[in-house]
């Protein structure tokens, strides 16, 4: 399931806002009965398979309890490297999208409304189109006979085509490109909700434009930064298509290893172990993020 996360955005976390999942149901006084079918659906097709994966990770193919797969994970440094690489990829992607996304979002809120709407469409169109198509587009651009190489050779800038595919650069750029809208939307929605008068108040109280940004605007955008970062990182480490298509053997991420275990090694137990690891990482992050997102509600006055 985690290998599919690049197609299905995480349920409950809408890209438009830094709001915590509605399904938490913490505020509900009474359980609404009409939700029963939905609940049943989730339990059957979501809850059960999830438990099944946990169970799978500690049983062999014959169904007997064993921790062999977990021991294998702990003893084999190659898997730790994959895990580390996946995390690093997530962090680098996050850093790039954060810098680019914050800048773009800031620019969008400063623009007048008409232009902001038009340019927002440019952000959203790639967001709505298929991830597979967009990854293929990178293949077309970066391939040996791709647009970029053809362009560079035609203008005599290089003699032989550069191998972009199979490099960290290609994977990182494609990931960042794919995930940028999530970051922009998260930050933009928070920025857009900031009362403009707060900045005027800061200026009036003696803050230069830069200090007004630093002491007032930036702290107020933190919920957006956290929500966007959380989403980009989670989606980034769970991406399958991009590293599979644009990466080489050196760009093996956790989801790729999971796929290999299932498709080639036929080791479902170990695949389950790796899935559980990915699930734990994202789960822990969700817990961490929730704390910050509650923080945002604490600042309810910002909107």
């Amino acid at each position: 399931m985690s290998t599919q996360s690049d197609i299905e955005p995480l349920a409950g976390v809408t890209p438009a806002g830094a709001r915590p999942s509605r399904r938490k149901g913490r505020d509900n006084r009474r359980f609404p009965l009409f939700l029963l079918p939905v609940l049943a659906f989730y339990l059957l097709f979501f809850g059960y398979p999830l438990l099944r994966i946990f169970w799978q990770s500690v049983t062999d193919m014959g169904g007997t309890f064993t921790l062999d797969a977990w021991v294998m994970l702990l003893e084999e440094p190659a898997y730790w490297k994959v895990l580390g690489y996946t995390g690093l990829l997530g962090v680098i992607t996050l850093t790039i999208t954060l810098i680019a996304g914050y800048t773009v979002a800031y620019w969008l809120v400063k623009l007048n409304k008409t232009w902001a709407v038009i340019l927002m469409a440019f952000v959203l169109i790639p967001f709505w189109s298929s991830g597979l198509v967009r990854t293929y587009a990178w293949l077309v651009i970066l391939g040996r006979q791709g647009v970029l190489n053809t362009f560079l050779t035609d203008f005599g800038l290089i003699d032989t085509p550069i191998a972009f595919i199979g490099t960290n650069t290609a994977v990182v750029f494609a990931l960042a490109y794919y995930l940028l809208p999530y970051m922009i939307l998260s930050i933009y929605s928070v920025m857009n909700g900031i009362d403009r008068n707060l900045l005027l108040a800061a200026r009036n109280l003696g803050a230069s434009p830069f200090r007004a940004f630093r002491h007032v605007f930036f702290p107020l955008t933190r919920p957006g930064i956290l929500a966007g970062s959380y989403m980009v990182f989670m989606l980034g480490i769970g991406m399958y298509i991009t590293p599979a298509m644009l990466g080489g053997p050196g760009q093996t991420t956790l989801p790729l290893v999971i796929a290999i275990q299932i498709n080639e090694a036929m080791d479902w137990t170990f695949a389950a172990v790796l899935s559980v690891v990915l699930l734990l990482v994202t789960g822990l992050m969700q817990l961490g993020a929730n704390r910050f997102l509650d923080f945002e509600r604490l600042w309810g006055g910002a909107r």
């Binding site: 108040a201 109280l205 003696g206």
Partner: peptide, 27 residues
């Protein structure tokens, strides 16, 4: 604006939501 030393009270108060009352007043 930031060099004029004029006090101002805004229509919707424009208090900084991320700062305590004390830090707002002392801004």
């Amino acid at each position: 604006a930031h060099k004029r030393d004029i006090g101002m009270v805004f229509q919707n108060y424009a208090l900084f939501p991320h700062l305590t009352v004390q830090d707002n007043v002392g801004f």
